[in-house]
Design a protein around this nucleic acid. Structure first.
Length: 888
RNA sequence: GGGCGUAUAGCUCAGCGGUAGAGCACUGCAUUGACAUUGCAGGGGUCGCAAGUUCAAACCUUGCUACGCCCA
């Protein structure tokens, strides 16, 4: 197969992906090999590929492809998340567009519609992950609500309940009045908004005066149950124990002493609304109120309802808590106006208020007293903390450990019930008295309750994260003891953005350790966010998102992937830089053309992963470069340094292989130069190119597979090739020889450019007093020196003229006679600059060496190196000085 | 208020104790032969500021400044 002149990523990407998938290349099919496992963070079934997915999945694919090349039984588990709230919102929006709403249907009808939507429109992202080249095990694609996974979720719920680690409780929750469901602490986002601070006078019951309170939520006074003052606050000591006659409702409430009241803030006295404020709930409990007695004055949408004492005036009932679009009035406004009319409004201040918002709905969260299910996270967190402390889980980069510990050590009960329809319905049934029976099936619950008892199932569903926390083992067949589970749990590494460290990673650690008695993964690799070019966070609302598919269309998936790897340094976000994506497209093109050159010269794939035997220095040298590259790559993989990996392979391909090696062996392929050198170079070049393709494959899977096949008839695809094991070492003699050649050529090019001598000008070189090794090198490398350095010949005699350009290479001074074309002043100034540079370094080293403390205290290697460097620089400066003198 | 991170060439970033690096951008030159999605050569940095530790600091310590994120 002849390689096309132009590299067209689109032409090869679809072809190879389909080939891999249809041949089962992504399946773990090496039962005798060491397993290697990653589970993919399941994207929302409603989702489409954004730039963050591109990063996250590229990193995972690099690790999986690398493991596969190492011969491991690599499994990359893939699937999608049912994403309770997000998916229900999508389908509800569709209904709204047809003037329908969820409640027009029965629960079963609605759920059927969501499944229908999922089958037709869900999972767009799975096709997009394929475009990125991700080698996931699609044949075992999972869904967090598929049958087997649902079984695992129900089992976990029941077991945690039976172990007392999951319980029902009446307490304040974060209630989202937009979505009309409880949400967890993590789903609440605190933002600062400009609000007001209202100061009210509350009249004392005995008519002896007033106590001032200030509040940011005046409407909640309809459910006030106390006024609190600080026990140390002498201004109010005499009032503690007295009662206040609450305006509007006329409720009689006590003045209590509580540390929560801050004497410095406002008047120092605060109103206490236990049913609608987290702090007040605690104050209320300390004041002796049971949670069942606490007043609730709002419904699920944030409208006023009557409190249990029936004291809220009728006109307030049904009013929204505060301003809402399209509503003429609201409870807040009415309370403030009423207090003003009564003469109880002292003043109103502007104030910045920390306000909780639902992260999905954007609504102001209402603390609301309801019955919900809670997981005892504190108990589950303990072994998960220990796992990181002991090193059973290695968090990379380590700096995240502190954040992990800090959160886990202060973890709160996790509210896991949601008032939605789409999700895992909670396996709990209630009898007429509200007694609860938790079991995996209705039959089992009935058995617990007794046959005569009529049961109703809890209508709520579980938090999506409750189910996805089981991903590392639920996808492997748990609770059944499958071979997959046995082989692939614990997973090797989890790759995730730090933004879901608490939401998902920590909860996986807790559930995994609890149910499997082993950590879910040995390494937790956390990466940053991909930011817009200006450093701002990408968001749809800002309109500054970059579409990874657009980048793939423009530059190819390989280029985008390489960009992600190259930019991924630990503990830092990635700023989008399209010019770098373009740069890596150019890199791919470079490789493509190098392969074309190889092919057109009859170079083809090798048959061994071990380095071929080589006599020529250039071949021994490039084999050594491969050895060095493999070592550096292996180290970077061991340390999860993706940027390091990219850097190493990039320079190997571009600099060592294309810029020098191919150029140096060209004479072997050109008639009239050195045809007899060709055979060995062809074999070595073919082998080196193979090693490069394999090493590059995890980063650029498409182009490497294409070139792999273009360069030979292969017994297997590159996706299943073997990671390089050159079985060779770096050859110091070869390195010295090729370094001399490269240095001579570079310095010759450089002086030409600086002296305005055409780069094509062919010159003769003189070395008056060459070292014997130099003569041998020149004999062997004459063709390369001629072709790349434009040096026709070397003479080992002094030149006759003073019109010369001179370069110092190692211990040799190479002199070019340039009568008639050289600008001697320019050459003098060029050499003077070089002398200054060498002398500066020489003197710096001399200064260091003359410092007795350095020689005494520094590491011996450092002293030795300084001596050697000093000798070298001194010799260079001396040679250059002599060269300058020769110019007259 | 607590924690974390970042500050290095015009831009995006490596380097984290022994002579400042890459890619892009910029300047000059080249070019029919793998490659203009090119090649060669070059200019450009008191490594945020200050003090300290050390024979030696971009790198370690402390403080400060600026920016970002997380938690309360």
């Amino acid at each position: 197969m002849t390689i096309d002149k132009t590299f067209d990523p689109a032409a090869i990407e679809a072809k190879w992906y389909a080939h891999w998938e249809s041949t089962g290349a992504f399946r773990p099919a090496r039962p005798d090999a060491e397993p290697y496992t990653i589970v993919n963070p399941p994207p929302n079934v409603t989702g489409s590929l954004h730039i963050g997915h591109a990063l996250d999945n590229t990193l995972q694919d690099i690790l999986i492809r690398h493991a596969r090349l190492q011969g491991k039984d690599a499994l990359w588990v893939v699937g999608t998340d049912h994403a309770g709230i997000a998916t229900q919102m999508v389908v509800e929006r569709q209904l709204n567009a047809r003037q329908q709403k969820r409640t027009d249907f029965t629960r079963d009808e609605f759920i059927a519609k969501v499944w229908e939507w999922k089958e037709e429109s869900g999972g767009e992202i799975t096709g997009q992950l394929r475009r990125l080249g991700c080698s996931m095990d699609w044949e075992n694609e999972r869904f967090t609500m598929d049958e087997g996974f649902s079984k695992a979720v129900i089992k976990v719920f029941v077991e945690l309940y039976n172990q007392g680690l999951l319980y029902r409780d009446k307490r304040l929750v974060n209630w989202d009045p937009g979505l009309k469901t409880a949400i967890s602490d993590l789903e609440v986002e605190t933002r600062e908004i400009n609000g007001k601070f209202w100061h009210f006078k509350y009249p004392l019951e005995d008519g002896s005066g007033f106590i001032s309170v200030a509040t940011t939520r005046p409407e909640t006074m309809l459910a006030d149950m106390a006024v609190a003052v600080n026990p140390s606050d002498e201004r109010y000591a005499h009032l503690v124990g007295k009662n206040v006659r609450l305006p509007i409702t006329g409720r009689l409430i006590p003045i209590v002493a509580d540390e929560h009241a801050d004497p410095e803030l406002g008047s120092g006295a605060v109103k206490v609304t236990p049913g609608h404020d987290f702090n007040d709930f605690e104050v209320g409990k300390r004041a002796g109120f049971k949670s069942s007695e606490m007043f609730n004055m709002l419904d699920g949408e944030g409208r006023v309802v009557q409190t249990s004492d029936g004291l809220i005036p009728q006109e307030y009932i049904g009013q929204y808590r505060f301003g809402i679009e399209g509503e003429p009035t609201n409870a807040r406004k009415m309370v403030v106006e009423a207090m003003d009319a009564l003469g109880f409004l002292e003043k109103v201040e502007d104030r910045v208020i920390q306000t909780p918002f639902g992260d999905r709905s954007g609504q102001v969260i209402e603390p609301w007293l309801t019955d919900q299910w809670y997981v005892d996270a504190e108990t589950l967190a303990k072994p998960a903390i220990e796992a990181v402390r002991s090193g059973a889980i290695d968090i990379v980069p380590k700096s995240w450990e502190k954040t992990y510990f800090n959160w886990m050590e202060n973890i709160q009960p996790w509210c896991v019930s949601r008032q939605l329809w789409w999700g895992h319905q909670i396996p709990a049934w209630f009898d007429a008295d509200g007694k609860c029976y938790v079991a995996e099936t209705e039959e089992a619950a009935q058995a617990l309750a007794g046959t005569d008892v009529e049961l109703t199932r809890d209508p709520d569903v579980l938090d999506t994260w409750f189910s996805s926390a089981l991903w590392p083992f639920g996808t492997l067949g748990w609770p059944d003891q499958t071979t997959e589970l046995d082989r692939h749990y614990p997973n090797d590494v989890l790759v995730s953005g730090f933004d879901i460290l608490f939401f998902w990673d920590a909860r996986m650690a807790m559930q995994g350790i609890h149910f499997m008695k082993e950590v879910p993964w040995k390494t937790l690799y956390l990466h940053g966010l991909v930011r817009a070019a200006d450093g701002s966070k990408m968001s749809k609302s800002k309109g500054n998102t970059v579409d990874p598919l657009g980048l793939i269309d423009q530059y190819g998936a390989d280029a985008l992937r390489f960009f992600m790897a190259a930019m991924e340094s630990q503990g830092r976000d990635i700023k989008m830089d399209e010019s770098r994506v373009a740069g890596y497209r150019n890199f791919a093109t470079k490789l493509w053309n190098a392969a074309r050159f190889a092919q057109s010269n009859g170079i083809s794939g090798s048959h061994s992963i071990h380095a071929p035997k080589a006599e020529l220095a250039v071949n021994r040298w490039i084999i050594g470069e491969v050895v060095g590259t493999v070592e550096k790559l292996n180290k970077a993989f061991a340390e999860f340094r993706f940027d390091g990996m990219a850097d190493v392979i990039y320079h190997m391909v571009f600099d060592q292989f294309c810029d020098w090696y191919l150029e140096l062996i060209k004479p072997a392929f050109v008639d009239g130069e050195k045809g007899e050198m060709g055979a060995e170079s062809m074999i070595v070049a073919g082998w080196v190119l193979d090693q490069i393709l394999v090493m590059l494959h995890p980063f650029m899977p498409f182009i490497t597979e294409e070139l792999w096949h273009a360069l030979g008839d292969r017994p297997y695809d590159i996706i299943h090739a073997k990671w390089p094991e050159p079985n060779a070492t770096v050859d110091a003699d070869a390195v010295r020889e090729i370094d001399w050649v490269i240095d001579t050529i570079s310095k010759t090019r450089s002086f030409k450019a600086e002296l305005n001598i055409p780069p094509g000008a062919r010159l003769t070189a003189n070395i008056a007093d060459p070292q014997p090794s130099t003569i041998a090198i020149i004999e062997r490398q004459a063709a390369a020196l001629s072709r790349l350095g434009r040096i026709d010949s070397f003479a080992f005699t002094p030149v006759e003229t003073n019109n010369v350009a001179q370069i110092v290479v190692g211990g040799d001074t190479v002199v070019y006679a340039l009568d008639g074309i050289i600008d001697l002043d320019a050459e003098r100034s060029r050499i003077t600059k070089a002398i200054e540079a060498a002398a500066k370094e020489r003197d710096a080293l001399a200064g260091r060496l003359s410092n007795a403390s350095f020689v005494e205290k520094a590491k011996p290697e450092a002293v030795e190196k300084a001596r050697a460097d000093h000798a070298e620089k001194a010799a260079e400066a001396e040679r250059l000085t002599a060269a300058l003198a020769r110019l007259g």
